[in-house]
Amino acid sequence: MRASKLQPALLGGVVIGTLSALPVISMGNCVCCLWVILGGVLATYLLQQAQPTPVEGIDGAITGLLAGLVGAVVGSLVSIPIQMVMGSMQGDLLRRILDQGGGDMPAEMRDALQSLARGGVGGALMLLGFVMSLLVNAIFGAIGGLLGTVMFKPALPPTPPPVPGFADSSRPHAPE
């Protein structure tokens, strides 16, 4: 009996999205998409716990991929209020940088930083970040799911030893 991939993918995706959206903790994704792989592994672990037979590689990869997609959506939704709070601080920081070192900067770069400080491209950057997150999370979530199938494969019971005195019916019996 195969278990549903939906609940493990949702839980793995919530872990991915939450850890990826938090300001300092999200830096863990700079290390080979650590939180995305962790979410894929977690989703496969949960899938394995829900079924008695070992999870096949394709099932683990699909569950991890789904967790990555859910994580991209959750991460984008969680990052909106964080950006609303942090955005004003980032704008103030950019204005100070422009005021202190603006004379040495090329005009194009100064214009781009002024646009960022005003918040003119925030929505476009968030949309681009969401699309990139969908792609990257799907790939690394699937990798995490595959790793989970290897890490959490249940131990198979040993094969029983042959029963003494029990003759194999396919071979002729030797005369006694």
Rank of each mutant, 00 (worst) to 15 (best):
G165Y: 02
G144K: 08
G57R: 09
D111N: 09
G122N: 06
R2L: 11
A124L: 13
G123S: 15
R96C: 02
P106I: 05
T149C: 04
L135H: 02
G12L: 10
G122T: 12
C33F: 15
L38Y: 03
E108W: 00
G103K: 12
L146R: 04
G91W: 01
Q51C: 01
I97N: 09
E56C: 06
G129L: 04
I82T: 14
S115D: 14
P172E: 11
G68S: 03
V31M: 15
P164A: 10
I16Y: 12
S79W: 00
S133E: 04
S76E: 10
I62A: 12
I82S: 14
L98M: 04
G129I: 04
A3F: 08
G75W: 03
D104P: 02
R171L: 15
L6N: 09
G123R: 10
E56V: 08
V121Y: 09
S76I: 08
Q48M: 03
S133I: 01
S76R: 05
I62V: 14
L22Y: 00
E108Q: 09
A3W: 03
N29G: 06
A174N: 09
G129F: 02
A142I: 09
V55L: 07
L128T: 11
G60H: 00
M84Q: 08
K5Y: 03
G102Q: 05
R95P: 02
P154E: 08
V14I: 12
V41C: 13
L77G: 05
Q49I: 01
G102S: 07
L146Q: 05
M27W: 07
Y45E: 13
L113R: 07
L19K: 06
I139N: 09
Q83T: 00
G17A: 13
D168K: 04
K153E: 12
P52R: 09
A21D: 13
L134D: 09
G120D: 07
L128E: 08
G103T: 10
G91V: 02
R171F: 14
P160C: 14
H173R: 14
G102I: 08
M89G: 05
L77D: 02
G17V: 08
V41R: 13
V85I: 11
A124E: 12
I97P: 01
G119R: 04
A61I: 11
M86Y: 03
R95I: 08
C30M: 11
K5D: 03
M126C: 13
F130E: 11
V136A: 06
R118H: 13
G28W: 01
G40M: 10
G122D: 11
G122P: 00
I16H: 12
A21T: 13
P52Y: 06
A21M: 13
G103P: 01
L6H: 05
L11V: 11
Q7H: 10
L46D: 14
L11W: 06
L6Y: 09
T18Y: 10
S26F: 01
E176Y: 12
V136Q: 01
P81S: 07
V14A: 07
A72W: 00
E176C: 09
R96S: 11
M126Y: 13
F140W: 15
R95G: 01
C30F: 07
A9W: 11
Q49C: 02
